[in-house]
Amino acid sequence: MPELDLNSDVVTLTAAVCDIESVSHHESDLADAVEAALRALPHLEVVRDGNAVIARTDLGRAERVVLAGHLDTVPLTDPPNLPVRRENGMLVGRGTTDMKGGVAVQLRLAATLTEPTRDVTYVFYDAEEVEDVHNGLRRLGETRPELLGADFAVLLEPTDGGIEGGCKGTLRVDVRAEGVAAHSARPWNGRNAIHAAGDILARLSAYETRTARVDGLDYHEALNAVGISGGIAGNVIPDACTVTVNYRFAPDRSGEEALAHVREVFEGYDVVLGDTADGARPGLDRPAAQAFVAALGLPVTAKEGWTDVARFSTLGVPAVNFGPGDPNLAHTDDERCAEQQIIDAEAALRRWLDGDH
């Protein structure tokens, strides 16, 4: 079984974590190595759940915080972009940005912070890069929510070293325009559903987006057509046309409220929900969050996309995104991460969790 030396520096540890291949659904070798390394630390309680590993301090502190990151990566390139190599201050290879730099930071802190100022739960989970039904953090939230309970959480996804608070929710619907089929040579015998869909597109074009201020951060909503389909043949007037619409909504709205709003926008049309995921409030009014921002000394911006911080929000735990790596380099063939960002991320979180020692 591969072994991880948690006494090595965080950059060397990142390379070692990356070199244990862990493409989604094949995380067992890395999960085994993480579990073995953490079980050797007497100050931690360790739980294994599938290919997720959870380690916790139990010092009776007034607050508990979570540091979380996923173990899996997208598939390797051909030829494989592993093992990791070091070039001009960068670690180059699969997983360096998304997100094994963050995982290595968690492991270093778990090993070296024996008496943090807050109790800490370290969560290493599986299957983030594939369909939501397989997501290990989702599984834990549904089957072992007590393991994720906390006052505040940090997801160490790559943020280029910045802090991104909470996240927006996302919703997808199909808006259907009805028509009457006819031969295209005699269109007056029918009603063209694609033409009728012009009103749906016009409503989208005229829609005025909302900017919502939530816990001190501005979230910019968006409502857009992301697909359109209709017609069965080149000589048939289509009797149906479907416009697929994506709504990115601020975390002051629930998924139900977001759907009700979209139905209002498209009143008179059949609106069918495809999928939805609530956003997450950043919780910057919480003491642990305020201490986090103060310790890092970085500005906080709203997370305009959706991330797994929303899973913590579902459990009543506010969360932010903070981790090493430029997200624009995630999943690329030449994925790479600046070594200094990994070092700085470890130092920043250490200031937060060990500031009084």
Rank of each mutant, 00 (worst) to 15 (best):
P238T: 03
P251A: 03
G234S: 13
P238H: 02
A233D: 11
P251E: 01
G234P: 07
L259C: 04
V262Y: 08
A260K: 08
T242N: 01
N246Q: 15
V245Q: 01
I237R: 10
V262Q: 02
P251V: 04
I237L: 10
E257R: 10
T242K: 01
R248G: 00
R263E: 15
L259N: 04
L259W: 10
P251Y: 03
H261V: 06
T244S: 15
A250Y: 09
A250G: 06
A250P: 07
T244I: 07
R248K: 10
E264Y: 12
E264C: 10
E256L: 12
H261K: 14
R263G: 06
R263C: 05
I237F: 08
G234N: 13
V236I: 15
G255R: 09
R263Y: 09
T244N: 02
E264S: 14
I232H: 12
L259R: 05
R253V: 03
T242A: 00
R253S: 11
I232P: 00
D252W: 04
P238S: 05
I232T: 15
P238I: 04
R253N: 06
G255W: 02
N246G: 05
F249P: 00
T242G: 00
H261Y: 15
P238K: 03
V245I: 14
V262I: 10
A240N: 12
N235E: 08
V236D: 07
V236F: 07
G230V: 06
A258N: 01
S254G: 12
R253D: 09
T242W: 03
C241N: 07
L259G: 01
S254F: 09
A250N: 10
T242R: 08
E264I: 05
T242V: 13
A233C: 08
N235L: 07
P251D: 04
I232Y: 12
P251S: 06
I232G: 12
A250K: 09
G234V: 08
C241R: 01
D252V: 02
A260E: 15
A250L: 09
G231H: 00
T244E: 12
E264N: 13
Y247E: 05
A250I: 05
Y247P: 00
V236A: 13
L259Q: 10
L259H: 11
P238F: 03
D239S: 11
E256K: 14
P251Q: 04
V243L: 04
R253C: 04
A258W: 02
A250Q: 12
P251H: 04
D252G: 02
A260Y: 09
V236K: 13
E256N: 11
P251F: 07
G255K: 05
E256R: 14
A258T: 03
G230F: 09
A233E: 06
Y247S: 01
